[in-house]
Design a protein around this nucleic acid. Structure first.
Length: 430
DNA sequence: TCTCCGATTAGAC
DNA sequence: CTAACGGTCTAATCGGAGA
């Protein structure tokens, strides 16, 4: 690959800043009284535990565990569960990311609670890392850990070490280790902790005697490539300090946009499915327009409850290419409506539905057609709709098929107030 | 036989 | 009282259809 190139005189200093127990930490910013309460944030529909405080982890609540399995434990130990409040988490995330972006022009917001920051060339790196951590805490109330390494994969691993070892005080720089220290440290860490090595692959690696990170780093590369493919090979190179995964400064546009939800209750009526679908379409098209795109493919699907083995299952879907690409909610909605009606069969209890937009291209491009005139591209209605909903909140203006029927909305019985987006919630007015 | 394409798999968070 | 189990997204790989 790049064997002939001279090694850089100094390694890159890639930092991975990761918020601790992010959703739970967000909730605690506005509820300091919950600082020591075992706390959990639930997934959509109040289904699974997706964020856990240290106290909740210590009590044995697993990541992704269905909440109904935890009822007895929660009762016994007074574990508090909250519905997820994405508006709040997105807002705090933006504040954290904007603080981090002052430390480097090269930042990649990797997820709602993680950011890669290229700190190569930063003087007094250790001191700066601690300062970054303290500043995020002081300005947002969110605790973070900082892991630094020569590649993204090693930065991730360093972050894991910073989180796990209190002695690190929340900052760990892999680049400070000698060769011997690296070997020893990686020999003590389970290979499953490595970014990109999930449950399946770690099980298969174990069959080859690859159990620790050091085992993977030193494994025979051609065999690894043959047995596990390019992804695992790249991961190995990254563990060896060779950067194979670039830092992505600019967020690429989505190639497909999905909007789907499980329902609060099962749904048996077509009208209710159509109502839900028009909400999904509206949300998907907002995302589409936000990135300045149009879609030429729509895919609609329905699902019965796959956990109810005693009930008949039916999981139909249909995909149609659109005659012209569009980002107009009304156009997409008409197609979705028609597709739902085609898929719908009575006598099934539907639990989930959704839409996927595909074949996404930049808006304004369309395939010239000898027979058809250019499509009408009046985007004023959708632009006005987006402005109103951005200004006054999602759902202020809807298309007519939305909101006529209820009975599908997700369960959110334990949601905190919208502290950062509604004054009433902060001031405490009813 | 090769190539394309949709479906499936695996992973992340 | 019972039943109760998330949502997006990407890249790689697989496997069948058609050239």
């Amino acid at each position: 690959m790049k064997a002939s190139q001279p090694l850089p005189s100094r390694p890159l200093q890639i930092a991975l800043v990761d918020c601790n127990n992010f959703y739970v930490s967000c909730e605690r910013v506005f509820r300091p009284d919950l600082k020591t309460t075992p706390l959990v944030v639930l997934s959509n529909n109040d289904g699974c535990a997706v964020s856990r405080s240290n106290e909740a982890k210590a009590l044995g609540i697993r990541m992704g565990q269905p909440w109904f399995e935890c009822n007895a434990l929660a009762q016994e130990h007074g574990i508090l569960a909250l519905s997820s409040n994405y508006a709040l988490y997105a807002d705090l995330s933006n504040r954290v990311m904007s603080i981090l972006s002052t430390y480097s022009p090269r930042c990649e917001v990797y997820s709602i609670d993680e950011c890669f920051v290229d700190l190569t060339g930063t003087p007094k790196l250790k001191a700066v890392s601690y300062e970054m951590r303290e500043r995020v805490m002081a300005w947002t109330g969110i605790p973070v850990c900082v892991g630094i390494g020569p590649t993204k994969t090693l930065a991730k691993l360093a972050n894991h070490i910073a989180k796990k070892h209190p002695r690190s005080q929340g900052v760990f720089n892999y680049n400070d280790l000698s060769e011997e220290q690296q070997d020893k440290l990686l020999g003590q860490i389970d290979v499953a902790e490595v970014w990109g090595i999930g449950r399946r692959i770690s099980a298969r690696l174990a069959e080859h005697g690859i159990v620790t990170v050091q085992d993977l780093r030193t494994a025979h590369t051609p065999t690894l490539r043959a047995e596990f493919g390019v992804v695992v090979e790249k991961t190995q190179r990254e563990l060896q300090g060779v950067a194979c995964i670039d830092l992505q400064d600019m967020v690429p546009n989505k190639k497909q946009i999905v909007c789907s939800r499980s329902f609060g209750q099962t749904v048996t009526e077509l009208a209710v499915l159509k109502d839900a679908m028009s909400t999904f379409v509206a949300n998907a098209c907002v995302k589409l327009r936000a990135q300045g795109s149009q879609a030429a493919l729509i895919h609609v699907f329905l699902h019965t409850n796959r956990f109810r083995k005693d009930l008949p299952q039916y999981n139909p879907s249909l995909t149609v290419p659109l005659p012209q690409p569009t980002s107009d909610s009304l156009v997409v909605s008409r197609w979705a409506d028609w597709l739902v009606a085609r898929l719908f069969k009575p006598d099934y209890a539907y639990k989930k539905a959704g839409i996927m937009l595909g074949d996404i291209t930049p808006a304004g491009q369309y395939q010239a057609d000898w027979l058809e005139p250019a499509p009408a591209t009046d985007t004023r209605l959708m632009t006005a709709l987006d402005r109103l909903n951005a200004r006054y909140g999602r759902g202020t203006v809807k298309v007519s098929t939305q909101g006529g029927h209820t009975g599908w909305q997700m369960r959110q019985e334990r949601k905190s107030p919208n502290y950062t987006t509604q004054w009433e919630a902060v001031v405490g007015v009813g």
